[in-house]
Design a protein around this nucleic acid. Structure first.
Length: 313
RNA sequence: GGUGUCGUAGCUCAGUUGGUAGAGCAACGGACUGAAAAUCCGUGUGUCACUGGUUCAAUUCCAGUCGACACCA
C-alpha cells in the first residue's frame, strides 16, 4: 500500500491478538507501532501486561514500537503525558517516511488522540499549592466541584491529586490556552473483537500460561525492587492480585479465581469504552476474531484501500 | 433395600404461619479529559426437581416419582 494515512488505529479488548495483528499490518503498511497501553509504558512489567518483544519480529524484520518501556515502575503516567509522547512518536515516524499505527486497548488514551482532547501543559504553582495545603479536604472538594463536575471518587480520594486538579482547572481558566489538539476522527480505525464468551476462554487460557511463564516471579521482583504494595495494587489486575497472593492475603486458588474474573470484567469495560467512542462519532471497522487472522488481514487491507478511495487520497 | 435430610437465579444459599420469591458472587448495561488494568453507578435474568391431590389459590401442605447426600442394613 503506497499512499500514507495520517494515522491508522487498531484497537480491541485484551486477549484478542492485537499485537500480532498490528505487526503484520505494520509490515504491509511500512508502519511503526505506537502503543496505546497505559501499563506497557512501565519497564519491568512485561508478562503481566502482555508485553512480548519477540512479537515485533516478523519474518526477518523487526517492527519498531513506541511508548513501551518509557517509564519507571512505581511512578505514574497519565493521559496528558501519553498525548504528548504520542505526538513526538508520530512526528518521528513521519519524519522517517513511515506510517504511524496506533495499537492498544486503553480507551481513554485512544480517545484522547482520536478526538483530540485539549490537554494543557500546566506548570506547577508553588504559591497556590502552599495556599491549598492549608485547606481542609472538604474545602478542596468544594473548590474543584465549582470548577467542573466530578468524574468519580478518584477525583477526591487523594489530597495531592485534588490539589493538582485545582491547579489544572485554575490555570486553564486564567490562561485561555488553546492547545494544539489535532483530532484524528477521520482516520481509519480497525477493531478486533470476539464473542464475549470466547474472550473469556482466551483470557483464562492465557492467564494459566502467564502464571507458568514467570509472572509470579515478575511481581516478586518488582516488590523486591522496593515498589510499594499499594502502588502495585493500583496498577490493577495481575499486579494487584499477585501482590495479594505474594503477601499471603489470598491463596493461589483464590488469586486465580479473582484475577480471572477481574480480567473478564476488564475486557467488558473496554468494550463499553469502544461503544462510547462509536457513539461519539468514531467509526470502528470491526474484524470478528472468529474469522481468523488471515481473512481479517485481507479485510483490513481492503477497508484501508476503500477508505483512501472514499476520502479521495 | 430401609430411614432421614435436601432439591429455589449461572453458583452458594435465604424465604414464603398457602396469595407465583430475594441476598452475595457471577452476568449484563452505563459513567468516566491529568492514576483509566484505576474509580464509580444502575439492572433480577426463575416451569421455586417432576406428576398428581387438598384448596378460591400450592413454590409453601399431602402422596408418589426422579436425583443428591448421610446413616442403618
Amino acid at each position: 500500500m503506497s499512499s500514507k494515512f495520517p494515522l491508522v488505529t487498531l484497537l480491541g479488548p485484551t486477549a484478542v491478538g492485537k499485537t500480532t495483528f498490528a505487526v503484520q499490518l505494520a509490515l504491509e503498511l511500512d508502519a511503526e507501532i505506537i502503543s496505546a497501553d497505559s501499563r506497557q509504558v512501565f519497564r519491568g512489567m512485561d508478562i503481566g501486561t502482555g508485553k512480548d518483544i519477540s512479537d515485533y519480529k516478523i519474518t526477518n524484520h523487526v517492527i519498531s514500537s513506541h511508548l513501551i518501556d518509557i517509564a519507571e515502575p512505581g511512578t505514574e503516567y497519565n493521559v496528558f503525558q501519553f498525548q504528548q509522547d504520542f505526538q513526538v512518536a508520530r512526528d518521528l515516524i513521519i519524519s522517517k517516511g513511515k506510517s504511524p499505527l496506533m495499537c492498544g486497548g486503553t480507551g481513554l488514551y485512544l480517545e484522547s488522540v482520536l478526538l483530540g482532547y485539549n490537554l494543557v501543559d500546566v506548570p506547577v504553582n508553588e504559591v497556590l499549592r502552599q495556599q491549598l495545603s492549608e485547606l481542609a479536604n472538604d474545602e478542596l472538594i468544594k473548590r474543584i466541584s465549582s470548577y467542573r463536575p466530578l468524574h468519580n471518587t478518584t477525583d477526591i480520594l487523594d489530597r495531592e491529586r485534588l490539589i493538582r486538579a485545582i491547579e489544572i482547572e485554575l490555570y486553564k481558566q486564567q490562561n485561555n490556552h488553546q492547545q494544539l489538539a489535532i483530532d484524528f476522527v477521520h482516520t481509519p480505525v480497525l477493531g478486533i473483537r470476539f464473542d464475549r464468551k470466547t474472550v473469556r476462554e482466551r483470557i483464562t487460557t492465557r492467564l494459566r500460561q502467564r502464571l507458568n511463564e514467570g509472572m509470579i516471579e515478575e511481581v516478586q521482583h518488582l516488590l523486591d525492587q522496593g515498589i510499594s504494595k499499594e502502588q502495585l495494587m493500583f496498577y490493577g489486575l495481575e499486579y494487584k492480585y499477585l501482590t495479594l497472593y505474594l503477601s499471603g492475603e489470598i491463596s493461589y486458588n483464590e488469586m486465580f479465581r479473582l484475577l480471572n474474573t477481574a480480567i473478564h470484567q476488564f475486557a467488558k469495560r473496554q468494550m463499553t469504552w469502544f461503544r462510547r467512542m462509536e457513539n461519539k462519532g468514531i467509526k470502528i471497522f470491526w474484524l470478528e476474531g472468529e474469522v481468523g487472522p488471515e481473512l481479517n488481514h485481507a479485510k483490513a487491507l481492503n477497508y484501508l484501500k476503500s477508505f483512501q478511495t472514499f476520502s479521495g487520497k
